[in-house]
């Protein structure tokens, strides 16, 4: 608040770098109830439409020799399928639609968030925490249901010397419960940081002497953000697979 006020006076920062993340109701009204249609809702809806457009309409011809859209859809399918199969093994393939859902949503939301004037849904902790908690709960519930107490073998490092094992168990336990935190904050933090940095450079563009530098910096950051948008979706998905592997095959 203070920065904004000062910036406004000096004619430098005319907008706040975090303003782009504000959730606003789309159709008037001041309060945000749980059912209110906001800009976040709009961009989630656009992500859904984009996914349907790519994965359903793009493949509607079922061509043996694929069109451009169909090869993108097949590429995404093959990419995630191979990841799930490689990391979790053959019996992890039943989680493939779930992992694919996460991957498609995150990658679409990240890329759509890079459009100018858009809203990045994955930059909000509310979204990424839910995504990460879903993974965490899936892993925990599935692991306990499938392996029972054997699932606790995840924390008991049987390859370590016996006196060390309780200490390691505590560390493993902490790291297990920190997983959803790091899992969610990594995604939101990366996306938010990139967008905020772009906005900061955009604020500098108002100052005539450094505006060329600022434009170049925005371009470079934008390129980096395109990379980050994909890599963070990939990292989120592969960590999901790694955690699912723990549920499927506990024990070190």
């Amino acid at each position: 608040m203070a920065t904004e006020a000062h910036g406004g006076e000096e004619g430098g920062l005319v907008f706040h770098p975090m303003d782009q993340f504000i959730v606003k109701p789309l159709f008037g009204g001041d309060t945000i109830e749980w059912y209110t249609i906001t800009n976040a809702t709009l961009w989630m809806g656009i992500a859904v439409l984009a996914i349907i457009g790519l994965m359903v309409l793009g493949t509607s011809r079922r061509a043996t020799i694929p069109t451009r859209m169909q090869s993108i859809a097949e590429l995404a399918y093959g990419f995630v399928y191979k990841m799930v199969e490689d990391v979790t093994g053959k019996d992890g393939v039943k989680f493939f639609p779930y992992v694919m859902t996460l991957f498609m949503f995150i990658v679409m939301a990240n890329f759509l968030g890079l459009l100018p004037m858009s809203f990045t849904t994955t930059s909000h902790f509310a979204v990424t925490v839910v995504l990460a908690l879903l993974v965490f709960l899936t892993v925990t519930i599935y692991g306990v249901a499938k392996h029972g107490t054997h699932f606790l073998g995840l924390f008991w490092v049987s390859s370590a010397p016996l006196p060390l094992r309780p200490v390691l168990a505590i560390i493993e336990l902490i790291s297990y419960f920190v997983r959803p935190v790091s899992h969610s904050i990594r995604l939101a933090g990366n996306v938010m940081a990139g967008h905020a940095v772009i906005k900061v450079f955009a604020g500098f563009a108002a100052i005539a002497t450094i505006s060329p530098v600022s434009v170049v910096a925005i371009t470079a950051m934008y390129g980096l953000e395109v990379l980050v948008a994909f890599i963070q979706a990939y990292v989120f998905t592969i960590l999901t697979c790694v955690y699912l592997k723990d549920a499927l095959h506990p024990g070190h």
Binding site: E33, F105, L134
Partner: peptide, 28 residues
């Protein structure tokens, strides 16, 4: 704004999941 976002996120995820698992993935 969390309640709102979480609600719409769940709707989004469920829609994507069903579209993918019922139509898109078997087809591909």
């Amino acid at each position: 704004t969390w309640g709102n976002q979480i609600f719409w996120l769940m709707v989004t995820l469920v829609v994507i999941y069903f579209v993918l698992s019922r139509i898109a993935l078997p087809r591909i």
